[in-house]
Design a protein around this nucleic acid. Structure first.
Length: 414
RNA sequence: GCGGGCGUAGCUCAACUGGUUAGAGCACUAGAUUGUGAUUCUAGGGGUUGGGGGUUCAAGUCCCCUCGCUCGCCCCA
C-alpha cells in the first residue's frame, strides 16, 4: 500500500457517513437546545495536566491512550481524549461559578491511541452534555431524560437499554472498595491474571470481567447496595423516582462501573447489542469531586458522552438531501445568462447544480448522477426566443417556458 | 500491548491439487446519437496479485519477514 492513506484509526467521513454524522449532530443540537442547554466548543487540546489530574494516573486513558506532545514553547499538550475535563476547565477559566447552574452541550473529535475495531477509532467523535453546579438528583434525571429523548428522536430507543447503578458518595464507595478488595484478596488464586492487575488498580472493574472464573467469584462478592450510606441511598432513590415519573425504563446493573476515577452516585449507560463488542452508545454519570480535584471550589457535576460514529452506525438509511435542478447552458451567451439564473434560483431557495464544462450529453449525464429531478436547458435557439427547456429527468419529457416565468414554471422541490 | 481472520483493477469478487499472456461484474472513457441523460449495443483505458526475501523448471497459490485492514481481549463512546 502507498503511504497515501489515513493514519490508523482515522478515516474520511464522506457521502453516506457524512449524512449519518450530521443527522446525529442535528438531532442532538435540537434536543439539547430544547432542554435548555447552551453550546460550548472547547479546544481540541489542553495542557496534559488537565487530563492527568482528573482522569487519574492509573486510568487506561492516561496511562496508555493519550496523544501527547511537547509544543514549541516546551509545554506538554494532549489531544483531548474525553470532554468532561476540558469543559470543567472551561467552567473554571471562564468564571462560570458565578452563573449558578450551568447546562452545556458540545460535540466534536476525541483522540485515543487504541487498537481500532468495530465502533472504535483513534479519532472518534462525541456528543456531550454536562450540568455543572447542581448537586440535586433532578439534574441526573434531566441528563438521562435527554439521552432517552435523543435516542427516541433518532429512532433508536428500542435498540438500546438503559443500565443504571449507584457508586455512592465517596464514603460509601470507599467502604465498598475496602470490602471488595478484602474479598478478592482472599480468592487471589482463582482470579484471572487480568483481574489480578485490576485488584490493585481499579478493583470495581473486576465486577464486569468477562472471565468465567471471575464471574463465579463475583456472584458471591459483596454488593454495592449494601454499602451505600443513607445519603447515597436517598440519592439513587430520587433519581429512580424521577425516571419512573417520566416512564423511562431502566435495568439495575450492580456491575456497571465507569472507568474514570471521578464518578460517584449515578452511573449509567445506554447499551445496544447491535454493535459487536462496543455496546455502549451513551455513557455517563455524576462527578461531584472533579472540579475540586482540578483545583476549583467543590462543584457538583453530572453528564454523559455519546459516540457519534456508534449512533450513526445504528441509524437506518439516512435520505439524501433535496434533489438539485441541473442548469445546462450551451454556448457562451447562455453560460452568462445561466450564471444569473442559477443565482436567482438559489436565492429563491432552490438547490442548483451547474457543471463547469461539457457538452449537452455530458451535462445531462452529470445531472443524472447528481440525482437531479429537473434539468433546465438553455441553448442558443432557446435564448434567442427568450425561452428555456425544462426537462423532467424522471419522466423523460420536456417543455419550453419563457425565461421570465422560469421559477414559477419549475415544479416545487421534491 | 496480546490473540484470530484477511490483503488480486477505483469498488465487489474469480483463478482446479503450484502450470502458458491474472479474469468478470460494477464504475470510468469513447462511439452508435454534430442539441438530449437514465435504458441498449460496441470498443477502450486501468494490475510491479500490499512490500521484501526464500523454495521450485515454474509462485496470486507454498515458507519466512514486514506493512496494512478487520474482528476480539484490555478499556471505552
Amino acid at each position: 500500500m502507498s503511504k497515501l492513506q489515513p493514519v490508523r484509526g482515522t478515516r474520511d467521513i464522506c457521502g453516506d457517513d457524512a449524512r449519518r454524522f450530521s443527522q446525529v449532530v442535528d438531532i442532538f443540537k435540537s434536543v439539547a437546545g430544547r432542554f435548555g442547554f447552551r453550546e460550548i466548543a472547547t479546544p481540541l487540546f489542553e495542557f496534559s495536566e488537565v487530563f492527568r489530574r482528573t482522569l487519574g494516573e492509573t486510568s487506561d486513558v492516561v496511562s496508555k491512550e493519550m496523544y501527547s506532545f511537547i509544543d514549541r514553547g516546551g509545554d506538554e499538550i494532549t489531544l483531548r481524549p474525553e470532554y468532561t475535563a476540558g469543559i470543567a476547565r472551561a467552567y473554571l477559566s471562564g468564571g462560570m461559578q458565578q452563573e449558578g447552574v450551568v447546562k452545556l452541550y458540545a460535540y466534536g473529535p476525541m483522540f485515543r491511541y487504541e487498537r481500532p475495531q468495530k465502533g472504535r477509532y483513534r479519532q472518534f467523535h462525541q456528543l456531550d452534555v454536562e450540568i455543572l453546579g447542581a448537586p440535586e438528583p433532578q439534574a441526573d434525571v434531566e441528563i438521562i431524560a435527554l439521552g432517552q429523548q435523543l435516542l427516541e428522536e433518532m429512532g433508536l430507543a428500542s435498540q438500546a437499554t438503559l443500565h443504571l447503578n449507584s457508586l455512592g458518595d465517596p464514603e460509601s464507595r470507599q467502604a465498598y472498595r475496602v470490602a471488595l478488595v478484602a474479598y478478592f484478596d482472599g480468592n487471589k488464586d482463582t482470579l484471572s491474571k487480568d483481574s489480578l492487575a485490576r485488584l490493585s488498580r481499579n478493583p470495581l472493574r473486576i465486577l464486569d470481567s468477562k472471565d468465567e472464573g471471575d464471574q463465579k467469584l463475583v456472584a458471591n462478592a459483596p454488593v454495592m447496595v449494601d454499602y451505600l450510606n443513607e445519603t447515597s441511598r436517598d440519592f439513587i432513590t430520587s433519581v429512580k423516582r424521577g425516571l419512573d415519573i417520566l416512564g423511562i425504563e431502566y435495568t439495575d446493573n450492580p456491575k456497571l462501573v465507569r472507568g474514570l476515577d471521578y464518578y460517584c452516585h449515578t452511573a449509567f449507560e445506554f447499551i445496544t447489542n447491535d454493535l459487536g463488542a462496543q455496546g455502549t452508545v451513551i455513557g455517563g454519570g455524576r462527578y461531584d469531586g472533579l472540579i475540586e480535584q482540578m483545583g476549583g471550589p467543590a462543584t457538583a457535576g453530572v453528564g454523559w458522552a455519546a459516540g457519534i460514529e456508534r449512533l450513526g452506525m445504528l441509524l437506518s438509511d439516512v435520505p439524501e438531501g433535496p434533489r438539485p435542478v441541473a442548469l445546462i447552458p450551451l454556448g457562451e451567451a447562455a453560460e452568462e445568462k445561466a450564471l444569473k439564473i442559477a443565482s436567482q434560483l438559489r436565492k429563491a431557495g432552490r438547490t442548483v447544480d451547474m457543471a463547469f464544462r461539457g457538452k449537452l450529453k455530458k451535462r445531462l449525464s452529470r445531472a443524472n448522477k447528481q440525482n437531479a429531478r429537473y434539468a433546465i436547458i438553455l441553448g442558443e435557439n432557446e435564448l434567442a426566443k427568450g425561452q428555456a427547456i425544462i426537462r423532467d429527468l424522471d419522466e423523460g419529457s420536456q417543455r419550453e417556458v419563457p425565461l421570465e416565468g422560469l421559477l414559477a414554471a419549475l415544479p416545487p422541490e421534491s
